[in-house]
């Protein structure tokens, strides 16, 4: 594209006329369309190299205890005696007071929905038949606004409300591994 043409183009845009100059038509820039078949049949040169990126993240003092307690069907938090907050998931320092937290505190496996969404799209970007209902649950016994991010289940998506009372549905003891998925989901309670 010549400089004069480029100027003309940018002028049209600057005027708020969102169209290309009459000298340029979309047909002039067709390019070459590629189909999935072209890739399958290797008509296009490409290299398909995957990264070898594997990790085993160290959970640390606070989260290790949290996970061990999940395995036992319990939820544990840490308390900061300065601000008085009960922190869940637990951490060994209070990020707001910037000091070590003081004690372990068991909290309940019940709480209220702080916020939620109805997720119709899966991680591979395809439409789901049954939606996921991710929610933040303020756990009873933890400080207001503190809670667990998890999923809701055994509920009609249309019935979910902010403030709804929910309870953890645990996997059977023998299936629990010390993982956040030891809780299958939270379900509504009356």
């Amino acid at each position: 594209m010549g400089r004069a043409h480029a100027k003309e183009l940018s002028r049209s845009y600057a005027k708020g006329v969102i169209k290309v100059s009459s000298k340029f038509k979309a047909e002039d820039f067709k390019g070459i369309a590629l189909s999935e078949e072209d890739f399958k049949e290797k008509k296009v040169i490409f290299s398909d190299i995957r990264a070898k990126a594997y990790y085993a993240w160290t959970a640390g003092v606070a989260i290790s205890r949290f996970l061990s307690e999940l395995k036992e069907g319990k939820i544990i938090a840490r308390k900061c005696n300065k601000c008085g907050r009960v922190l869940i998931p637990p951490r060994m320092f209070c990020e707001l007071c910037y000091r070590p937290t003081d004690e372990w505190v068991y909290v309940k496996d019940t709480g209220r929905v702080n916020t939620f969404s109805i997720a119709w799209i899966g991680v591979n970007a395809s439409r789901l038949k049954e939606p996921l209902i991710p929610a933040v649950i303020e756990i009873d016994g933890a400080s207001p606004g503190m809670g667990i991010y998890h999923m809701l289940g055994e509920v009609d998506p249309a019935e979910v409300r902010i403030g709804m009372n929910v309870q953890a549905v645990w996997k059977p003891k023998e299936e629990r591994k010390g993982c956040i998925t030891d809780i299958k989901y939270f379900k509504p309670i009356k």
Binding site: A51, Y55, T58
Partner: peptide, 15 residues
């Protein structure tokens, strides 16, 4: 550095 969290150190460098 939390190098031991990386299970594929050479793989990351190769990448």
């Amino acid at each position: 550095s939390k190098a031991s969290d990386i299970l594929s150190y050479a793989g990351i460098i190769q990448h």
